[in-house]
């Protein structure tokens, strides 16, 4: 007998019908979305990568932001350790931090490229782990196969740090295969294969790097490497001068002053950053000073001073 102002949806039949219709619509849009767009769902790949995914889920869709946090932590860890006391410099967290960063945000370009540079840098300026750097860049390639820079960076690591010029040339070639890659990669690959490790091919590598750098950081890094190559040229000259001193005096020089006195040098030789070169007469080597920003010089084992 109760009378209620009845709206259509207050009748069970209509309510049920409307509810069924609405549920059908949202379920079918969900099915459609999963069919059509599942491939672009970034989270599906993440499911199978250890450690980071747990965090990605915990982040409840704020994973990109969390990636930024981890990236900043990686930077702080690297920078802080590098600047810290030379004793007990441990970069052991750098790898995991970069791993988490790139898992949280698999498209984090800087984390791959800068991360790889940090990882390869020789101790004490970095952990000296080219293997981790290559693995990180390969992960980046998996996410973004059209980034030719990542292939080039791997080739680079093989060239500069591992000194496997065959492998390096292979990766430069792969980089050149990616559409839109720089034209000089092909010639870099050929050059590496022919004269890998020569200072001239190294100079070409860094010169191209310098010219194509898209950030100041990479350009500065390339400039530093080119300066180091200049320092190596200087050291060749200094070794030649020492050789002439040995010829004349019959003994190795003990200081720069002796070479200046013999008119073989016009003054104390300075490296391109203005720090004097160091002659280690005990071990018989010439090197940049350990407080020079060029230290340590890369790659080539320094030739011994003539005895």
């Amino acid at each position: 007998m109760t009378e209620r102002s009845t709206q259509w949806w207050q009748r069970p039949v209509w309510f049920t019908a409307a509810m069924v219709l609405l549920v059908a619509v949202f379920v079918s849009t969900a099915v459609m979305r999963d069919r059509v767009y599942a491939a672009t769902d970034p989270e599906t790949e993440l499911l199978y990568i250890p450690s980071g995914p747990v965090l990605a889920r915990m982040a409840l869709s704020f994973d990109a932001l969390l990636a930024d946090v981890y990236w900043i932590r990686a930077l702080q860890h690297y920078g802080g350790t590098k600047r810290g006391d030379s004793e007990a410099r441990s970069y052991e967290l750098l790898g995991p931090l970069l791993e988490i960063t790139t898992t949280l945000d698999p498209h984090f370009n800087a984390a791959y490229r800068f991360g790889a540079i940090f990882l390869t840098e020789a101790y004490p300026n970095g952990p000296g782990r080219p293997d981790l750097a290559v693995a990180l860049l390969e992960k980046g390639i998996e996410q973004m196969p059209d980034r030719w820079e990542y292939y080039m960076d791997i080739g680079f690591i093989y060239y500069w740090w591992v000194k496997d010029y065959g492998r390096a040339a292979e990766w430069f070639d792969k980089a050149a295969d990616v559409p839109g890659a720089s034209w000089w990669l092909r010639s870099l690959a050929a050059n590496t294969l022919a004269a890998g490790g020569s200072r001239q091919s190294s100079r070409m590598l860094w010169r191209e790097m310098y010219d194509s750098a898209d950030t100041d950081w990479i350009r500065n890094e390339a400039a530093r490497r080119l300066t180091q190559l200049d320092a190596l040229d200087d050291i060749d000259q200094l070794i030649a001068a020492s050789g002439r001193f040995v010829e004349r005096a019959g003994r190795p020089p003990s200081s720069w002053d002796e070479l200046v006195g013999a008119s073989l040098l016009v003054g104390i030789p300075l490296d391109p950053t203005g720090r004097p070169y160091v002659m280690d007469s005990v071990n018989g080597t010439i090197n940049v000073a350990s407080d020079s920003s060029l230290f340590p010089l890369p790659g080539e084992t320094l030739p011994p001073l003539p005895q």
Partner: peptide, 16 residues
């Protein structure tokens, strides 16, 4: 702080 990624981070932060 970060090398060349500030625009990305501001976007992340703003949207979040």
């Amino acid at each position: 702080l970060t090398a060349g990624q500030d625009v990305k981070i501001i976007k992340d932060l703003g949207l979040a």
